Simulated assay, not measured.
Amino acid sequence: MPYTILVTAPTLAPAGRQLLEAGGHRVIYLPESADGATIEKVLVDEPVDAVISRTLTLSAAAIQGAPRLKVISKHGVGVSNIAVDAATARGIPVYVTPGANAQSVAEMALGLLLAAARRIAWMDAQLRDGRWSRAQDGIELSGRTLGLVGFGQVARRLWRACQALGMSAWVYDPFLPQDAELDGAQRAGSLAELLDRSHVLSLHIPLTPQTRGLIGTAELAALPPDAILINTARGEVVDEAALIAALRSGALYAAGLDTTAQEPLMPGNPLLTLANVVLTPHVGGSTPAALAAMAEGAVRNVLGFLAGNPPAASACVNPSVLS
């Protein structure tokens, strides 16, 4: 049976598009200029059965105004742009595609770490401006400790890569089962215990009311001297004013950020003026391989649910609606 699927982006990777085309489904794509109001209008005007959500906000008003909406799938794993409570209130499951972009995000985290530790981006910019600036104060990572806040698939892959550099690791994840395999890492009983040991602090947690601003002035001050912060999670889990202050003062050696509180960054953002920050525009999971896996996973999520073959409950962020 053909369904009407709304994709909150101009396109999907071919792996996802081909699945939709093969089933003869009607697919509504949104232009680059679309915003939350556009989504609300489409959901009122069109008989949408399912939404594949990318970066645009899927608000409570949009969900409440979609009479035929039955299922939502995130193109990825972060659902901070989806009004999950509104979906739950209507009995609509919200699925994610866990692991689909984990390798790409882990590689981005590693790239940011190496660039931040050795000031690679700064030296590149200096050379392009005609200056032979040979920074010789970079940090050698061998023998240092990687602190991982959250120990999901991205964190595990990053840790495996850092093992090859001669690093050790500590993990803080209160949701991790006590008998979970840590791949040689040590487990911290509290965030404070982790911070005290972390020469590199890498964040791998979703944005929730509990994690918003989790890393602030006190947490940054608790890190060892010359520590590095890596964030490929969500910008809002860091108090950005505190981060900027720590970077300016030298209390923090450097930061590598794929996510920031403000996206896109506006020209006056202080992060853009700091030589000890490496910035990328939230593209950790945006390699062709990751985009293909996320597109296929998101399409399979919604089509499986609509056909009576729902995905595993572990991929649902509001599993109470499934009972």
Rank of each mutant, 00 (worst) to 15 (best):
L141H: 10
H199N: 15
A115T: 08
E181T: 12
L194T: 05
L220S: 07
G138W: 03
Q163A: 06
M167N: 08
L127Q: 10
T217C: 03
G150H: 13
A241C: 01
P206T: 12
G184T: 10
V154Q: 15
Q178W: 03
P206Y: 12
D124L: 01
F175G: 12
R187E: 13
G213T: 07
F151C: 10
L195A: 11
G213D: 11
Q163W: 01
E140H: 14
T211V: 02
R160D: 06
V171K: 09
S168P: 00
L223W: 12
P209A: 11
T145Y: 05
W159G: 00
R131A: 10
L194W: 03
R197Y: 09
A241Y: 02
A241L: 10
P209F: 08
D239T: 07
W132A: 02
R118D: 09
Q163H: 04
R128P: 03
D179I: 00
Q153T: 07
A241P: 00
S142Y: 02
E240G: 13
V238M: 08
D129W: 00
L127Y: 01
G184H: 04
D124T: 02
R160H: 14
A164C: 04
S190H: 11
D179A: 15
E219H: 05
T208M: 13
F151S: 07
L191C: 10
E181I: 02
L182G: 07
R144M: 08
Q210T: 14
R119M: 02
D226P: 05
L176T: 08
M123W: 00
V238H: 10
A155L: 14
L113K: 07
P224I: 04
V154P: 12
G138D: 14
L214A: 13
V238R: 04
Y172R: 01
F151E: 03
P209E: 09
V154W: 12
P206F: 12
S202K: 01
I215S: 03
T208H: 09
Q178C: 03
Q136N: 14
V238Q: 09
A121E: 10
D196W: 01
T217K: 14
L207T: 04
Q126M: 15
L127P: 00
W159D: 06
R134H: 07
M123H: 00
G189Q: 14
R131M: 02
Q186H: 12
L182H: 02
R131G: 00
F151L: 05
G213A: 08
D183N: 05
Q186D: 13
D137S: 15
Q163K: 15
Y172L: 00
N231T: 14
W170R: 06
S198N: 11
D196M: 09
R234N: 10
R234P: 06
A164Q: 11
L194Y: 08
G130C: 13
R134V: 02
W122D: 10
L203P: 10
A135S: 05
V154G: 13
A116G: 09
Q186K: 14
R197W: 05
L127M: 15
V200S: 01
R128M: 04
L113W: 02
D124H: 13
T145H: 06
C162F: 11
R187W: 09
P224M: 05
L220D: 07
G213I: 04
S142P: 01
Y172S: 00
A169E: 11
T232E: 07
A135N: 14
W159Q: 15
Q210H: 11
A161C: 06
G184C: 03
L148Q: 06
L243M: 12
I120E: 11
S198P: 09
V237A: 09
G166M: 07
Q186V: 00
